[in-house]
Structures are given as C-alpha cells and as structure tokens.
C-alpha cells in the first residue's frame, strides 16, 4: 500500500511542473498589462511606467521570471499581489476555507441525494420513477449555474423569505477565524446563533453548487448499479434467497461504488470550477471570486499562484481517490 502511494506521488511531479508552466504562461498570454489597467483613463507617464515595471520585475526576461516564480514556489512563497500588496499565499489561505466549506456541503448534498436517487432509479429501471429521476438529473446537469442561482434566490429568498439572499453569515456575527470554516469556528466560539446562521447561509449556495455533481452522481450510480445487477454473483445471491435489500445494498452497491467514487473524485475539479459563478452570485468570499478579480486586474502573482495551488489541491484529491479504490477494492492494491 505504501509503495502504491509512493508511486502515485512520484507520478505527480511532472504533472506539477507542467501546471506551473501553464499557470505562469496563461495569464501572460492574455492581452493586457497590469500597470496600464491600474492607471485607467488617467494614464501614466512613460517614466513612471518604466519605473513600476522594473520595481515589479516585469522588465526581466520571461525565463528569469519563471525560474524566480519556481524558486519562490519551492520556498512556499508565491510573491505579493499587485493590487493589495499582501502575500498571495495569505490571500489564498484566508479565502480557501470558504470555498472548501461550500464545496464540502455541496458535495454532501450531491451524494446524500444523488446516491439513493441513482440506486432507486436502477432498481425501478424503466418505471416512472426511473424516468423521473433521470429526467430531473438531466435538467440539473444542463442548468446554467448563474441562472439557477438567481432563480432560487428569487423564489426562496425574495418571495418566500426562507433563506438569506447572499453572504456567508449574518452581519451581526463576527467570528474570529480559527479554521476558516464558519460552521466550525462558530462552534469553537460557542456561539450557537452564529452556527445556525452560517448553516442558514449555506443552504442555497450548496444546492446550486451541488446540482451538477448530484446529477452526475445519480446517473453514474444508476448505470453502474445496472451493470453490477447483471453480474453472476448477484444472481447467485438472489438464488441463495437473500433479501432484496441485502442484495442491493451489500452485493450490488458496494461493487458499484468503485466507479461512483471515481466520479465523485472527479467532481472536485467541477466543484472548483462551479465555485466561480456560485461564489459570485452568493457573494461568497472564496477563491473563485478572488481568482476572477485577479484575472480581470491581470494580477500576475495572484493568478499564477492561485492556479498552482488549485491544481495542487485537485491533484491531491485525485491521489486520495486512487488510494480510496484500494480500500474499496483490494484487488487493485498491488
């Protein structure tokens, strides 16, 4: 198992180097100059422009800048944001927990609803329930996040008044960040009101962000359940006279889960991508919104640093998913 882990880890190294190259060049390939954007209509004198350019180190060759970036990266230093002048690492770390918290709740929502829905659809294959579940999940999958979010806000927040429109917690609470997870920090602070408020604010964004993964999970569960249901060992289990429930939950679902876990792992990338519009609609102070701002301001250090960190996280999650296979299915451990 440990060797398996090491091999997987070693495989990440070339991927990671590739990511640094892509992240470094992506923002520089986009037209636009951070200094000119900062100056706006007011403009900037040629001398001042040259001065700023050399201060920021943008007058050096790209190769030198890239290796400088790599060197910093190895020391855990991603440079400072051009806009706030704060270290990119700090900026990222102060926002990432918000995105992670939202993603975890969205994923939990997707799994809790998607998995049983997929199982039910498979068991009732071809029946009305199956068609309904699959129909709804197809709709969910094709839902543009922005539109879906606004629709839910208009219905549940503006019309019914059940949920807040946007934000992470009521402005009446200020919880000192410890972990950065609002739900956990409010519990650490022992403030139940804040805890409930943070949950209340999580409901809509989690649903919106979780909708597409939910659809994917439901469909994947259904199809892999159907595949396994056709296996000989399932027929054997039924022939042994096991209860239907036991056949479905133990013999079928457990085997069907392998491909479902893969798909859940793949959702992490999707969740981070979906976080961008979701965070924008719900004014959620996470990295999605932060990255968009950084890109539009051509804040090179923030964009390249943010991309590398996000890619790093996705890679780690994929590694964990690979390891999880080993737990679910002992056959692939070696």
């Amino acid at each position: 198992m440990f060797k398996f882990f090491l091999v997987k880890l070693a495989q990440l190294v070339p991927t990671f180097i590739g990511v640094t190259i892509v992240a470094f060049s992506f923002i520089r390939l986009l037209p636009g100059d951070p200094i000119l954007l900062m100056a706006g209509e007011r403009g900037i004198s040629a001398e001042r422009y040259a001065e700023l350019k050399s201060q920021l180190g943008f007058d050096r060759s790209l190769i030198v800048q890239y290796f400088d970036f790599l060197k910093g990266l190895l020391h855990g230093d991603l440079g400072n944001s051009l806009v706030t002048h704060a270290p990119v690492m700090d900026e990222f770390m102060s926002r990432f927990p918000a995105t992670l918290e939202l993603s975890l709740f969205a994923l939990a929502f997707a799994v809790i609803i998607g998995l049983p829905a997929g199982v039910l659809a498979a068991v009732k294959r071809g029946k009305t329930l199956d068609h309904t579940v699959m129909g709804i999940s197809l709709t969910g999958y094709s839902m543009p996040i922005f539109w879906w979010g606004l629709l839910l806000i208009m219905l549940f927040s503006s019309t019914l008044g059940w949920t807040p429109v946007s934000g992470r917690i009521s402005y009446m609470y200020f919880i000192e960040p410890v972990t950065g997870f609002m739900t956990i920090d409010s519990l650490i602070a022992g403030d139940w009101g804040a805890f409930l408020s943070s949950l209340h604010y999580l409901i809509l964004p989690s649903i919106v962000l979780g909708t597409i993964p939910l659809a994917v999970i439901a469909r994947q569960t259904r199809s892999s359940m159907l595949e396994v249901l056709g296996e000989d060992y399932v027929r054997t289990a039924r022939a042994k006279g096991l209860s239907n429930f036991r056949v479905i939950m133990v013999h079928t679902l457990r085997n069907a889960l392998i491909s479902v876990v893969t798909v859940i792992g793949l959702q992490v990338g999707l969740l981070l991508a979906g976080a961008i519009p979701t965070e924008t609609i719900f004014s959620w102070p996470g990295i999605g919104k932060w990255m968009i701002d950084a890109i539009s301001r051509r804040d090179y250090p923030s964009v390249q640093g943010g991309l590398v960190l996000i890619a790093f996280i996705v890679m780690i999650v994929n590694l964990l998913v690979d390891l999880a296979y080993g737990v679910i299915n002992p056959r692939i451990r070696h």
Binding site: L150, I153, S158, P164, V165, S166, T280, I281, F282, S283
Partner: peptide, 17 residues
C-alpha cells in the same frame, strides 16, 4: 456587505438585507 453582482444587490435590497 460586499455583493459584486448587480442583480443580487437588487434582491438583497428587496429582501431588506
């Protein structure tokens, strides 16, 4: 309350947030 989307600001204003 930082709310970057104009449509959402409008919803918040209507909801009294």
């Amino acid at each position: 309350a930082i709310t970057s989307d104009a449509q959402v600001r409008y919803q918040k204003l209507m909801a009294g947030e």
